[in-house]
Amino acid sequence: MNIGIVTFSQSNDNYGEVLQCYALYKYVQSKGHHCFLLRYEQTPYTNFALKAFTLLSLITNPQRLFSLLKKRRGKMIPHATDNTDRKFFEFRSKKMECTAPLTKNEILENPPEADAYICGSDQIWASPDPIMYLSFAPKDSIKCAFAPSFGGLTPNAYARLLIRKYIKDFDFVSCREMSGVKLCRELGREDTCLFPDPTLMHNASFYSQIAQEPPVGDKYILLYMLGNKSEFDIQAVYDFAHKEGLKVIYITGQNRVENYYRTTNATVEEWLGLIKGAEYVITNSFHGTVFSLINHKKFLTIPLVGAYERMNVRIHDLLSKFKLNNRLYRDSLSPIKESIDFEYFDKEQQRLIAFVDQKLKILRQS
């Protein structure tokens, strides 16, 4: 079967975004299918109805509106400008078969041919973009949603109408968070089930095949922080590391620029290697948390605040699933030294993989 995958993948500094895409690609490939990544280049909404939805969302969410205004006035974390040494483009090009970059109109008018289409994980359903809901797929093709996330979105009446319309014709629907499952069930898809992020469909040995061992002689803490706002004092990590006799390796992503501490850029392979070799991991990233678990690392996850607080639902769901709510940062780094029952995590991960394999009968090769 020839399968086209649509998901977020074009970031130049968000490791989780690229790796969730890669993990889904390799999972589908492992089932004997040929697959390709549909390189969708999103542009600002041009459709009047979608513009109206965005405006209504801002009006009904004052925190988000205030955050956006602050960002435009330059009071939020500034944007990074040069990530060429992270080589994300090279990773995508070497590891996955991709289409040429395509705009919304190009996809709607002439979609790449496939027997089935999958819209993948990450927060691709945080806005009612028809491409992310596979509205372009021909009627005789299979449409499958593999763990997309609404990112904590509470859709207004218009958005609910759009989402109901989009998911009606799917052959299979799953979501990454329980809140998304409930929303889809409310909108007519009572068969929606909970799926793990595709990065959890592979164990540490799979990622070790591409991880690059870091040239770090000293033991270290890996600090990985995305640009979404967190109330967290970075200096606390350096103070903790000093007491423990550890070095700090600090990687930023998602346009975060650090003005006070030295940061390290890394390729995807190096990032995986740095997590694998770390003594501890501290992060505000969902996928930073996932890969800490996969690599059996003691970690703490920093919750987001303000307009981004709604995105914490993915972290809460993930930690609750593996009985690790104590790994959420609460004003102290000391819990990071507590032991983690990774045997339980490994068993649960294998159960999730078996569950997904059983549910996706529709994609089994005949």
Rank of each mutant, 00 (worst) to 15 (best):
D197H: 03
T192N: 04
L194W: 02
A159P: 02
I163D: 00
K165N: 09
E213H: 11
R189S: 03
K168W: 03
A211R: 03
F170N: 06
F172G: 00
A157Y: 08
I210M: 15
T192W: 05
Q212V: 10
A157Q: 11
V216N: 04
S174H: 02
A211K: 07
L162R: 00
Q209H: 05
E213Y: 11
A204I: 11
C184E: 06
P198A: 03
R185A: 13
V216K: 06
L194K: 02
R189P: 00
I210Q: 06
G180Y: 03
A159L: 05
I210F: 12
A159S: 11
T192C: 10
H202E: 01
Y207M: 05
L162H: 01
G180N: 11
V216D: 10
N203F: 07
A159R: 00
K165H: 07
D171N: 12
Y207Q: 05
P196R: 00
Y158V: 12
M178F: 04
T199I: 01
A211L: 11
K165R: 07
D169T: 14
K168T: 08
T192M: 05
F172I: 09
L187S: 07
D169H: 14
E186Y: 14
P215C: 09
K165D: 04
S174N: 12
L161K: 09
I167F: 06
D197K: 03
L183A: 04
R160E: 14
E213Q: 13
M178C: 10
A211Q: 07
R176Q: 03
V181R: 03
E177P: 09
F206P: 04
G188V: 09
E186V: 14
L183G: 01
K165Q: 08
S174L: 01
A204F: 05
F206E: 07
V173F: 06
L161M: 13
S205P: 13
L187F: 13
I163S: 03
L200M: 08
S205Q: 13
